[in-house]
Structures are given as C-alpha cells and as structure tokens.
C-alpha cells in the first residue's frame, strides 16, 4: 500500500493515535443480489405494461372517476369516525381496566373478551341485522311505556351502523394499546407529580399520558392503517359506498374486475403512505427528551443517551421496535 517513499512507523511501535486506515471489507454478494432483484423487477414491470388483462387504459380512466373518488372520501370518513370513537372508548376502557374497583375492571375485561374474541366481519353482519333483533329504540324506564320510541331502521342508517361496528371492535384493541402505554411509565413519575401537589387528572394529562404517547402512537398508527383497510369489510352491514365495494360494483357492470382492483389498491396505498408520513412526525414530537440518541451534551459524562431496543407487541399487530422505557433517568454510574 505504501509507496516506497512513504514513511512507515517503526515496526512494533505503531502510532496509536493515528486514524485507522484499512481496506474496507467487500460485500460482493450484496451487489449480485441487488442486480438480480432489480432485473427481476424490471422484467415484471415491462411484462405487466404489455399484458392486456391489466387493461391499463381502464385503470387510467377509472382512477379519477367521480364515483371512485367519492367512494375514497367515504372510506376516509369511515376510518376517521371509527378511529376517533375507538380511541376515546379505548382510553376509557384502559383506565377502567387499571381501576382498583373490581366491578369496573370486570366490565372492561368482559367488553374486551366479546369484541376481541369474535371476527369483525361477524360483528358487522350482526350490526346490520340489529333492526331485526331490536325493532325499536325506546328511552324510558323498564316495564313502562317509553317516553320516546323510534324505529331502529329509521334511526340508524347503514353508514352509522358501519361506523359503530368498526369503532366498537377497534376500541377493544385500542384499550390494550393505551393500557400498555400507561403501564410503561415509571411509578416514580406519578409519585413525583403527586408529591408536588398535582391532582390525579393533572398527573394523568401532564405527566403520565404524554410519556405513554411514545409507546401508544406507533401501534395506534398501525391501527389506523389497519382500519383504513378493514373498512372494505363494511359490505357485510351491508354498506356499499366505500372504495372496495364501489369498485366491485362498477366492475360488475363492466365485466372487467382487474383494472378496478388496481384502482382501489392505488387509492389505499396513497392513503396509507400519507398516514405513514404523519406517524413519523407524531412519533418525533412525542419522543422529546428520551427518544433522541444524540451524544450527551452535558460536560459531566460522555455516555450516549440510550442503547438497545425493546419490542412492544401491540394487540396482535406487527411488532414495533421502540426505545426502551426510560424509567430511571441517569440512575447508577452510567453517566
């Protein structure tokens, strides 16, 4: 490596402070794999472009069809309404499950048992048949003439039933996510807050919840994405104005299902991509002071913030890797 003119340090006495100059380890197989994979992908794309069954002109024609874009909007509405209800209900159920009151605790447990233990498709079908089970909604005292009574069919349209069905199912999963988040916060945080004279609700909203958000948000993002796709099941209610059922209905007329499936997939992908970007920024916001791994700025020690990762499994969803719960800031001789 060194030319004949280069000054080499005397053997056995290397200059320890000099930066290491070494030939980097080569990874020839990485290159081979990359080339093969790219080649297969390019082949697939070119092949797909000329395959008549995909019917790309139809894809272009229907992608911005008014019926499809309206259906996409309905899908978003279903997702947003059911998620908002599910998150609120989930927080309530999570707090109930952590309550010292055994009755409240059991009610929450029972709810989870029912709604997590049956398929969402079955639940949606039952919600669709609710007017057969309960023909009218009465408000009043039991065994007396109701003060107000109206027909279930008139009060609840299929959109409402779809939202209710999706939300109540999702709430069970959200409850577990929120509970895991609340439990991930160190007990000392609650004690410190209480010792300062803060009330239970202040402790919850200012200290515990903000810290548990770091654990709650990643799986919740997964749930939103999952919900966006689960809306395609509301045809069980039956509600037919959302993206998937609408595109199926159109293809039933045209006898050409494949391009419309591609259209629906493109819309779903578009929405999930936006959600992923949003999730990234939310996670960043709530990991203030803990999630960042920049070097320790204090002059007292050079130890970097956090190491390692703890997998948190959110209610049967894909495993999300998070920074470890930081329950002992700077404890021990680490910094």
């Amino acid at each position: 490596m060194n030319g004949p003119a280069a000054v080499t340090p005397p053997l056995g006495e290397p200059d320890a402070s000099a930066p290491i100059k070494a030939i980097r380890l080569r990874h020839p197989w990485r290159m081979v794999f990359a080339v093969v994979l790219v080649a297969i992908f390019v082949f697939f794309v070119i092949d797909a472009a000329f395959r008549p069954a995909y019917d790309w002109p139809s894809v272009g024609k229907y992608l911005f069809d008014r019926r499809i874009s309206m259906a996409a909007l309905v899908t978003i509405e279903l997702t947003v309404f059911s998620m908002v209800i599910a998150i609120i209900l989930g927080v309530i159920l999570a707090v109930m499950r952590l309550s010292p009151n055994p009755v409240v605790k059991s009610v929450a447990w029972f709810y989870l048992w029912i709604f997590r233990g049956t398929p969402v498709y079955v639940q949606l079908t039952i919600w669709g048949l609710i007017s057969l089970i309960y023909t009218s909604i009465d408000i009043g005292l039991p065994f007396m003439t109701p003060w107000v009574s109206f027909s279930t069919n008139a009060a609840l349209n299929t959109f409402t039933l779809a939202v209710v069905g999706l939300a109540l199912n999702e709430a069970a999963y959200m409850a577990e996510i929120v509970r895991a988040g609340l439990l991930s916060v160190d007990k000392g945080q609650e004690e410190a807050s209480i010792a300062l004279g803060m009330s239970w609700s202040q402790t919850m909203t200012r200290v515990i919840l903000p810290q548990s958000m770091r654990v709650i948000i990643p799986p919740t993002g997964n749930e939103v994405i999952s919900m966006l796709k689960t809306t395609s099941l509301v045809t069980a209610v039956p509600f037919s104005l959302e993206l998937f059922t609408r595109s199926r209905d159109i293809s039933a007329e045209t006898f050409n299902p494949i391009p419309l499936l591609i259209v629906a997939s493109i819309w779903y992908l578009f929405f999930t991509s936006i959600l992923m970007v949003g999730q990234y920024f939310l996670e960043k916001r709530f990991s203030r002071g803990v999630g960042d791994r920049q070097a320790n700025k204090s002059d007292a020690g050079g130890g970097a913030g956090l190491t390692g990762a703890v997998p948190i499994v959110g209610a049967g969803q894909p495993t999300v890797v998070l920074p470890p719960t930081h329950d002992q800031p700077g404890t021990g001789g680490t910094r």
């Binding site: 160190d186 000392g188 945080q189 004690e191 410190a192 807050s193 209480i194 010792a195 300062l196 004279g197 803060m198 009330s199 239970w200 200290v207 903000p210 810290q211 709530f286 203030r288 002071g289 803990v290 930081h326 002992q328 800031p329 700077g330 404890t331």
Partner: peptide, 26 residues
C-alpha cells in the same frame, strides 16, 4: 379527599433517590 391531601402536599417538598424528573420536559 384526594384534593385536600394534594393541598397538604404542596407545602412539603420531596426529593427522590432516583430524581424522578419529568423526562419529556426541560
């Protein structure tokens, strides 16, 4: 009631072995 107990704690400062600073605040 918890409210009254909280009021008493205002006048008593406590410092913990493990600091228990709020990590999400400066």
């Amino acid at each position: 009631a918890p409210k009254e107990a909280a009021k008493q704690r205002r006048d008593i400062g406590m410092v913990f072995q493990r600091f228990n600073l709020f990590p999400h605040m400066t």
